[in-house]
Amino acid sequence: MFDEKDLLLEARHVTRRFSTPSGRELVACNDVNLKLYRGKTLGLVGESGCGKSTFMRFLVWLDRPTEGEILYRGKDITKLKGRQLHDMRQHIQMVFQDPSTSFNPKMKIRDIVCEPLLNYGRIRHSQRDEKARELLEMVELPGDFADRYPHNMSGGQRQRVAIARALALEPEIVVMDEATSALDVSVQETVIELITRLQREKNITIGFICHNLGFIQSFSHQIAVMYLGNIVEVMPGDQLSSLCCHPYSKALLNAVFDTKMDFSRKIEPIKGEPPSPLDVPVGCPFQDRCDQCMPICRERRPVLTEISPGHEVACHRYGEGVSA
């Protein structure tokens, strides 16, 4: 499926525990293993609170895992400090969900997009005008927007500026945390077109967080489904509807409303809500909401097993679980 020599970043057994005031432990990410390939998009899907943002935040050093390592260019980036960390940051950048709160409202767009470049001494102060114009034109905005403030722009335009800022340093990896969720569908479409075009031109690797499976499958090369801190299924993006077999991924797929669906079909939402991450049940985390739960699901936690090239599932009904 993917060429191993294109492997750019690999997370191995990444676990993040938070301790709560009551002395209990909350496991936000449990033994997460994921790979990012050069020029490809990894879509990470799950309900709120499943740990998808926690994981992506490790990549940009907004948080550090409790255990495990993240290898980038052969180096474990979770242990970096000082100068080395500063240098590494320019290779991995982030676009946040809400473009209106991720900018300093008192800075002009010119200063916003050029700040990373000035930080790393890539341009001189006098080159700002020229560079800002170039970056804005890259994201299909008029160069004159450099003189505006964030509040003078629409949500879609602001998100384009956020993309320009993230790409200013020409990073290898860009993490996008629900980067289009706050936008209207028609704007969302144009922003995604922009992102995929820039990805092709610059061969950028993207880690995209989203909760809408229908949307993310339209531009991901690889999709990982996360539930309560565990990766339950990883599959190639273009074969999502035919391959997807974990009961939770199927439920997510069933919950997608689109205009081409059969409207007479009664939607069958999964029952209840995910249990509190403070008391994740023994065995499979999805057991209480799964309609195919077996006795073994309550005893042993299924491990992620490859059942076909590029397709891994953590479910006792598939892979290792069936033979055992």
Binding site: F219, G237, D258
Partner: peptide, 15 residues
Amino acid sequence: KLIKAVPSLGGKRYV
């Protein structure tokens, strides 16, 4: 335009 922009399963892929 609005209907076309709605992402749909097995619909348009950008990559």
